Structure formats: structure tokens, C-alpha cells
Amino acid sequence: MGHRFPNGATVGELQDVMRQVLDAARDADLALDTFKGLTNAERDHLVACRLVSPDFEWTLPGRALLVDARRSLSVMVNEEDHLRIQSLSAGWSVSASDAEARACLDALSSRLPFSFSPEFGYLSASPFNCGSGRRRSAMFHLIGLAQSKRLPAVLTALSAMGVSVRGLFGESSRAIGAFVQVSVLELAQTEFAGACEYLLREERESRTLVPRETLTEKSTQARDFAVSSRSLSLADALRVLAWIRWASVSSLPGFPSSPRAADAALTTLDIRGTMGEEHAARQRADALRAALGA
């Protein structure tokens, strides 16, 4: 785009990039809400919904976030790169997300010049992301593999396929509560789908190896802990949610009838505690009690 990457750009360059992107989105008639500034509550909610990166420096000049009405598509301006487009969909529906992101990219690329090198492909602030400029990711709940002690072997097999495994909030985060992201940069969609199908099969098989009595005991302990707690760390909240979700999938009495209750609670947790960790810990406890109907 004729500008240095965000980590080396001047304020003027960043603001110029932002104007170009916003103008292109408007000219393309993309139905996106634009946020040039966010309250702490808005920012925390969008991070929890995976619509914005936890590391997005939204208070700095030249930053903007564009989000669609369904909250399934977001465009970060001047995050690590000048432009980062994300599309999210529920369930195993990578093709739907791919089509939505591609439509947005096509609309913007017809109005914006992108830096391309015949040797390296599309250029990025990180050399690891050069090339196609596309990452496919899926989030999994691998509590069965974790409990049956099979998770390390499965992750090693995924690595051999060229699939990286990261924590719930992406790069550098840990897989707390057995919530993980698997992602690829260069594999074709069919290969990525095959890797994910392998992971689904292994997880389903592993869940059959854990006795129902063990599931009932640990889920009940997690539920009782959440109900009696008035504040929870993020790690504790995720561990509790992991057991609530599995109990719901298994239709255990005393738990939500659908795992979607746990999924919804996951998007309301205060991740970074921008209003203070004490406030965040209370909010997490309230969210889990609400999910449990307590």
C-alpha cells in the first residue's frame, strides 16, 4: 500500500492507511459498523467474541475496527498488519467463513493496492505470514483427549500434518480447559478439513473412554465450585466451563440442556480485566452462575 508496516510507520502513515481502508469499505458498500474508539466494555466483549485480537492497540492513532451486523465478520486496521480480515462461523463450517472473508477481501482489493512480491507472495509484517496471507483456524474442546491422556500424541500427529495448535486466544496463549485453536497457513482447505475431521474422531473416541461416573463427579465439583465462588480467575472460569460444556453434551442432570449455554458464557467472560482484575473476577463468577441458572 506504499506505507511501512504498522510497527515502523509514522502516525501520519497509519492515519492515511485508515482513511484509505474506510473509504474503500464505504465505496464498496460493505455493511460494516466502524469503531475508531471503543469503551473498555465494548472492547472486552469483542475480544471474547473473537472479533478483535487481544493485542489490538485500539487506543493508538490510526486504528479502526469494522464489524458486520451479524458480528461474524471483522476488519482490523493497523493491527500487526495494515489489514486483517476475520470471518467466524459456528460449528464445523470453514467453507462458509472462507466465502465470507473472500467476498470482503475481493471488495477491498478492487479499491486498495496490496504489496506483493514474486518471491515471497503477499507481504506481511511477520515473515511467517508472507505468501497467501491467509490463515484457517478452528476452535475445539478437547477435554476427552486431555482426560484420557491422549492429547500430546494427537497434537504431535497434527504437527506432522503441518497444523499448529494454539490456546483459546491465539498465539502465545495456553490451552486452558482443553479449549484450543488449530490453524494452518499453507494447507489447502481440503487438507485442513481432513486434519480437523481426524481431531473430531479422536476426541469423540476419547470421550467414550472416560467413565460416566468420573464425568459426573468432576462436573459436579466444578459446578459447585462456580456456584459458591464470588470471583474467579480466567483460568478457573475456563476450567469450570470445560466441565459444564461436557456435562451438557452428555445430558447430565443439573446442567444446562445444551452446550450452547457454555459457549455463550465463553463470549461474555472478561478476558483482560481492563477495568481491573477484581472487577473481572466478579464478572466471570456472575457469568458462570447465570449459565448454570444459579
Rank of each mutant, 00 (worst) to 15 (best):
E205D: 12
D106S: 09
G254V: 03
T216F: 06
D23V: 06
L292S: 10
L151C: 00
L73D: 07
R260N: 14
L241H: 06
S250A: 07
P152I: 02
R204V: 06
Y198K: 12
D33Y: 07
L241W: 00
L187E: 13
A153N: 07
F225G: 00
E57I: 07
G177P: 09
A41S: 14
N40G: 11
E79C: 06
G8I: 11
R84W: 12
V17P: 08
G121L: 11
H45F: 14
D224V: 07
S233G: 05
L30Q: 01
L65S: 12
V180G: 03
I85N: 04
S258P: 07
V227G: 10
M139G: 08
N129H: 08
S148A: 00
W246M: 11
V249P: 01
E13T: 04
A157S: 12
H141Q: 06
S124G: 09
Q221Y: 10
F225N: 03
S248G: 08
E191T: 08
T274I: 08
E79G: 04
T34I: 13
T34Q: 11
M1Y: 07
G62N: 01
P127D: 02
A235P: 02
L158Q: 11
I176W: 12
S124M: 02
S183Y: 05
L252M: 06
S126F: 14
F56Q: 02
V11W: 09
A265V: 10
R63W: 01
V21T: 07
S109T: 15
I176Q: 08
G254A: 04
E217H: 06
A291P: 01
T39W: 10
H141G: 03
N78G: 15
M76H: 05
D236I: 03
A160R: 15
F140P: 00
M1K: 15
P256H: 01
V21Y: 15
G8Y: 09
A222V: 11
Q15I: 15
R239K: 10
S248M: 01
L105F: 13
A107K: 14
E100P: 04
L200E: 12
L269R: 12
V94L: 08
R223E: 05
W58Y: 15
L234I: 13
V249W: 05
S132K: 14
E171H: 13
G254R: 06
E197A: 15
D236M: 14
P6L: 14
R63E: 01
R223K: 13
H279C: 05
A294K: 03
S126H: 12
S74K: 10
H82M: 04
H279L: 10
G8A: 08
A287I: 03
V210W: 02
I143H: 09
M76N: 04
P127T: 13
A188T: 12
V75I: 01
Q86L: 07
R71L: 09
V163L: 14
G254N: 04
E197M: 07
W58M: 15
T268F: 04
D81K: 04
V52I: 00
L83G: 05
R260P: 10
T216S: 08
P259C: 11
L151I: 04
G144N: 01
